[in-house]
């Protein structure tokens, strides 16, 4: 063994200065997804948990297929929000998929639910639509597709918890007025167009008042019998 010692010492002497010099002159950015998506952090939080701004949604723990569909929709201009459209404009599909998988894999803690500012009646109406729908008006319950625990379903159905009322009503409003669309058949457009403004307010108030789920994961693919055909959740 000791026969090799001079060689080892020699190699160490030669290699060390190079290593030291390199670490001085070429400090590289961390080779992680977290470092790559720091651009998202100022609005969505470092782990996609959301920030204090009520219009910026939580991303963490939503199914990767849903997040990917949104990233593509923002990049290609189907979903309109100029700061997002701008940031994603020149990012290729493969990378967007990795970004989606990154946020889907994170499980930061949920924010405490907002103290309800709406009346008991409004919250009860919201709960009823979320759990039972409104069969008289052909409205299916949210839980039929988003799961009884509202955690979403792989690959394309998002979880509904940890979001603020302003964001939820903004999205439902977007679908009602056609400013947010998904891959056809666009089931959410059908559902949202059946809701009244009061329904939207009630659903948003109820969902945003829910505490963190005990199990923050989404349902496996195909585990929920969906009442409508959805382009973003191929059966």
């Amino acid at each position: 063994m000791h026969r090799f010692l001079p060689l080892v010492a020699f190699l160490a002497l030669v290699a060390l200065p190079i290593g030291a010099a390199q670490s001085q002159t070429t400090e590289r950015a961390p080779d992680t997804m977290a470092a790559r998506v720091l651009a998202c952090a100022s609005c969505h939080g470092a782990e996609g948990e959301g920030t204090s701004d009520v219009y910026f949604p939580r991303l963490a723990g939503k199914p990767a297929g849903y997040l990917y569909n949104q990233l593509i929709a923002f990049r290609d201009g189907r979903r309109k929000y100029p700061p997002m459209n701008y940031l994603l404009e020149f990012l290729p599909d493969d990378y967007l998929k990795k970004i989606a998988e990154h946020f889907a894999s994170l499980r930061p803690s949920f924010p405490p639910p907002a103290p309800p500012t709406d009346s008991k009646e409004v919250l009860a109406r919201g709960e009823s639509i979320v759990k039972n729908g409104d069969p008289q008006h052909g409205i299916p319950p949210c839980s039929a597709c988003h799961g009884p625990a509202l955690g979403g379903m792989e690959p394309g159905v998002p979880g509904l918890l940890g979001l603020r009322a302003a964001y939820i009503s903004g999205q439902l409003g977007g679908w009602r007025y056609g400013t947010r669309t998904a891959i056809a058949p666009d089931c959410m457009q059908i559902v949202a167009s059946l809701l009244t403004e009061d329904d939207v307010k009630a659903v948003a108030a109820y969902l945003s008042s829910r505490p963190a789920p005990s199990d923050p994961s989404f349902a496996p693919r195909g585990s929920l019998p969906m009442p409508l055909e959805c382009g973003s959740e191929p059966r």
Partner: peptide
């Protein structure tokens, strides 16, 4: 902004707004 995703830099780092 994000630099473009290219063959030579497929997973660019972004600057937050």
């Amino acid at each position: 902004g994000y630099p473009p995703g290219t063959a030579g830099n497929p997973m660019p780092y972004g600057m937050p707004p």
